[in-house]
């Protein structure tokens, strides 16, 4: 039986060629995308050592003058307890970094994400090479600032307490002065009474005047009596007030300690939460941005354009009517 099978072979060959071409195109596309993402870009590995890995993580950005030039590839614990950090820097940027450059752990803004900032070294130093080690410093963060604030307030509170204790001491100069004033007032009252008696027994010729003077002096005496009484009351009440002030200051100090404790706890938690929130928002923005650029979504998204407020011939007329 004569069966011609050449069309079947031809079809298989065509399908095979088609599939092969599609595969090649797909591989070329993947290669192109990988190249665009920097998978084949040449990089330089740099290291630095830190006492603690606090605030550092794999993938965090390495920046120079605000530009991202690489990323942290590995954070590992050394046998001596120090932390070894491996960074990968694009070769296009290594000429900015000299051997004496410093890596600093900082933040983008007060509550921004942690980054490694490369601080340039001296202009004469040689450019870094692969596997070089940079010096490392940790920038002051929110926790350090809060601790500084507490350290500055603490001596002030101690001074205030000392002053209060000094005022409260019965043997101090201030208390002695108040007592002397009290005694002098009492003596003045006695003197006034003697003067009054003297005036009463004086010449009758100045009776009218004397009577007036007596009245005046009597009033003065009354006032001085009142002053004496007031000073006595003050003397009785001051220790109580001082005691209350002392207690108030103790309460204030305890409250400050609580605030410090809360601040310490917040300092550990709040920046983390805010960082996470910011990172999540950035991730979401990147995902949405990526989706917008991807087929077929990109076909449905029109880029924003700057628009002119419509010019309206009625607008000025309406202003005049108003």
């Amino acid at each position: 039986m004569d069966v011609d099978i050449s069309p079947q072979r031809k079809l298989r060959r065509s399908v095979l060629w088609f599939a092969l071409t599609a595969l090649l195109l797909l591989l070329a596309l993947i290669g192109g995308l990988a190249w665009k993402q920097g998978a084949f870009a040449k990089t330089t590995q740099l290291y630095f050592f830190a006492k603690t890995a606090y605030g550092m993580s794999k993938g965090m950005a390495v920046k120079f003058s605000g530009f991202r030039i690489g990323s942290v590839e590995e954070v590992s614990l050394e046998p001596n307890g120090s932390v070894k950090v491996r960074m990968v820097i694009g070769n296009a940027y290594t000429h900015f970094i000299s051997k004496d450059s410093k890596a600093r752990l900082g933040k983008e803004g007060l509550i921004g994400a942690s980054i490694i900032e490369i601080e340039p070294g001296e202009s004469g130093a040689r450019q870094v090479a692969d596997n070089d080690v940079l010096a490392f410093a940790r920038l002051r963060d929110f926790n350090d600032l809060a601790q500084d604030l507490v350290n500055q307030i603490q001596p002030i509170l101690t001074d205030v307490k000392m002053i209060t204790e000094f005022i409260n001491d019965p043997d101090n100069d201030l208390r002695q002065t108040i007592k002397n004033v009290n005694r002098a007032s009492a003596a003045l009252v006695e003197t006034t009474q003697e003067i009054r008696h003297l005036v009463q027994s004086s010449d009758q010729r100045v009776g009218a005047v004397s009577a007036q003077v007596g009245t005046l002096l009597q009033h003065a005496g009354e006032r001085l009596d009142q002053v004496g009484a007031s000073l006595k009351t003050l003397d009785e009440k001051v220790p109580g007030l001082m005691l209350k002030a002392d207690k108030t200051l103790e309460n204030l100090q305890a409250a400050t300690a609580n605030v410090k404790k809360i601040t310490d706890e917040s300092v550990e938690q709040v920046p983390g939460i805010l960082r996470d929130g910011k990172a999540a928002a950035e991730d979401a923005r990147e995902i949405v941005g990526g989706a917008k650029k991807a087929w077929p979504v990109r076909n449905f998204v029109t880029p924003q354009q700057e628009t002119l407020i419509p010019l309206d011939s009625h607008e000025s007329g309406s202003a005049q009517r108003k």
């Binding site: 596309l29 087929w295 924003q304 700057e306 628009t307």
Partner: peptide
């Protein structure tokens, strides 16, 4: 679709300006 040229990427600064304008 994969081979089709992606749309001309909008300049990030202009996109920001457009956002402020809006």
């Amino acid at each position: 679709a994969c081979a089709s040229a992606p749309p001309e990427p909008q300049n990030a600064r202009l996109a920001q300006a457009a956002d402020y304008n809006r």
